[in-house]
Amino acid sequence: MNLAYRYTRDRILHLLFIFLTSLVVLPLLVIFGFIVWNGLSSINLDFFTQELGSPARAVQGLPTGLVAAVLGTVIIDLLGLALALPFGLATGIMLAEYSDNPLAGPIRILVSTLNGMPAILMGLMAYALIVKNTGGFSGISGAFALGFLMIPIIARTTESVLRITPWQLREVAMSLGLPRWRAIMNIVLPAARPAVITGVLIAFARAAGEAAPMLLTAFGNNYLNLDLTKPMDTLPQRLYSLAISPYKQWHILGWGGAIILLLFVVVTFAAARGAARSLEKRTEALKFDEDKNV
């Protein structure tokens, strides 16, 4: 057990960690590279401004693009987030702050179950509730499907974030005479804000990549449509239909769509990471204060 041996062991383990990590990261980079390599040639102005139309357009070299899918993804995803946010946050708050409520236990189990459910079931629910009752496929039904998908994710992250917020915050707030709801809304939530945002962004990015629920709700559209009561296009679903088509030009367009979707998700996750960082700084500051008080 001399020093040299301990250093060597440390180095070997260090190398092992690097090796195992790169084993995971390398295939991911290869996939990124492959997508960019295949799709980059389709990314041009037409890609963002033209409607897809029929495959004849692509085959004959006429202008064609994915404007409908790009805009549709952003609109439906944002709308889904707007629908999910109040419910997701409220559930998370209820589970963390009112865990003494007899409903909290069953709800926690329900949230976990919903978290593990395949996304297509959310699509099916939106189909049964919205599509069937409003007389057809629509962008708004797609937003509902994505909203259903986001609620349990937001609820779960909000709950765990609120749980790790220092308990003293609530004690201090209430000792100053604030009612419980005010303590939560004005003290606890703002303290946990960056982490809550991280959770919300993860839900947002996760929903942006879902194709299956869209098949049953937003349904797809080869033309640009901003009327939410009519079928709309989304990138994941369009990628699927481009990929199974017999046209090489559509395959390239599909790879291009994959680049955009990937960018969308990567940017969202980067933002989430940024938010998480600022939370770390905040909690450190809080801890420092605690130490001083002691």
Binding site: I75, L78, A82, L85, V200
Partner: peptide
Amino acid sequence: MRNIKATLIGSLMA
């Protein structure tokens, strides 16, 4: 909270 509100209002306006 301000950010969340902004997102919400933005989406509704859209």
